[in-house]
Amino acid sequence: MFLLRKLASAILTIFVISALGFFIFRAMPGDPERMLIGAAQGITPELLAQIRARWGLDAPLFPDQFLSYILSLARGDFGYSFKFRGETVLGVIGPRMMPTLLFVGTAQVIAMVVGLWIGSRAGWRQGSILDRFGSSLALAAYGMPTFWLGMLLLIVFAAWLSWFPVTGLANIEQTNNFQQWLGIAWRSVLPIATLAIAQTGQYVLLMRAAVVEVSKEDFVTTARAKGIGSNAVLRRHVTPNARLPIVTLISLNVGFILAGAITVETVFSWPGLGLLTVEAMRARDYPVMQALFLIFAVSIVLANLVADLLYARLDPRVSR
């Protein structure tokens, strides 16, 4: 019952969002047909009219354009990109998916593992060297603008030390598969490091706070009084109880992951979904914007659904 309720609300949310996405972007000032041409020489009304007709922009927004959008969406057809002149939206988004998932996913995993470990240790031994160093570094990382951090890493490790290339994925010598993979891995290091450092901060801070909170509970005192070793108390009694807020953070992060990748992708000219979002916005590429909006929304809704289900497992009281 609980599962069904959650699932139904998720599906409804996604439907409302996809309808909303249609109107929000069209409410933004600016016409795609002007952006398609740029400020080119000799724009003629005939050409503008032809482009409008060609892209279906001459039909009334409601119901014609809206209905055809919803109907194609129901068939899994996202339409054709304006900016990319008739390439299918999926064809535009597809190749941008892997770079983002690769770098955002890896960065998240690193941030989570490192952040949660430091956070729990720091919270458990308040005032220790690890706590003082870890917490202040985490605060600095959390407060640092990602753009600036990325630039800093780029200048130090790519320009000064020449450990990594400055040019992005586009400049890989494609002689064989192995070299290509090596090239991708090599070029991923700095973007991943940037996002990981920026994300680690908040995991440390939140985990530390949760552990501090839990360690004041009576059952912790009891556990200690029973003579259980300090590390075992942390592992068996404190950490499990500190999980709930962390699950919330992780599920919320999935949404920001994709959106937050925008700045990092811009710094490193990383051809992912973040950079594509910026390009599509600039060009008023409605179909691509709608699809990206939907992808971001669905990933947040799914993450929340997973979080809800996890909650129910971690704390059975939630599902009642």
């Binding site: 630039m151 780029l154 992005g168 586009a170 400049n171 992708e265 710094v267 000219s269």
Partner: peptide, 9 residues
């Protein structure tokens, strides 16, 4: 190559 960040270029 297109750089989305001129400082990187």
């Amino acid at each position: 190559l297109h750089f989305s960040n001129p400082d990187a270029a």
